[in-house]
């Protein structure tokens, strides 16, 4: 078991090393490695900051055309199932935000015109807070929120 772990660790660091060298020597622009992972948005410590960084605006318009499915009480904050469904037309992206996490933005989903306004995943929540779904459509940010009570936080520590 320890042997196996060592092996994966070795493999991991070797792979990381190789990428590092490739990036360093300019063979591989960082952009091609990851299309455009919005680092600053994921590091932002407030909802406004995260949205400004992610989509360039933070003004939210409440909408009743978005439905969030999440438990009222999550016993384990490390695994909170969340799904977002919307009937708004022309959805460009859906973002899922846990308001009181250290870094509130959990994930963003860029949807092609063929995709429907629906995503489901499982997120980590550090404490009881509002889960906010932000739907970008036609240059406007539509949003709705749902309170989730967290019994045991799931962000480490």
């Amino acid at each position: 078991m320890t042997n196996m772990k060592r092996r994966t660790l070795l493999k991991g660091s070797l792979a990381a090393g190789a990428v590092g060298i490739a990036v360093g020597s300019g063979l591989l622009a960082p952009r091609t490695v990851l299309a455009a992972w919005p680092k600053d948005a994921f590091k932002a410590t407030s909802v406004d900051e995260a949205l400004n960084s992610l989509v360039g605006q933070s003004q939210l318009e409440g909408s009743d055309k978005i439905e969030i499915k999440a438990p009222d009480i999550a016993e384990n904050g490390a695994v909170v199932p969340v799904s977002v469904e919307t009937t708004i037309d022309g959805v460009e992206s859906i973002s899922i935000i846990a308001e009181k996490n250290n870094t509130p933005l959990t994930s963003a989903y860029i949807l092609s015109p063929r995709a429907e306004g629906f995503v489901a995943t499982r997120i980590k929540m550090s404490e009881t807070s509002s889960v906010i779904a932000v739907v970008k459509a036609g240059g406007t940010l539509h949003s709705t929120g749902k309170e989730v009570k967290v019994t045991i936080g799931g962000c480490g520590g």
Binding site: T103, T106, E116
Partner: peptide, 20 residues
């Protein structure tokens, strides 16, 4: 059809569902 951008606040052994 779909690009998901994830931060560390997605649960271990992630689940993802979408429609197109």
């Amino acid at each position: 059809v779909m690009t998901a951008q994830w931060g560390p606040a997605i649960s271990k052994n992630p689940y993802l569902s979408f429609r197109f």
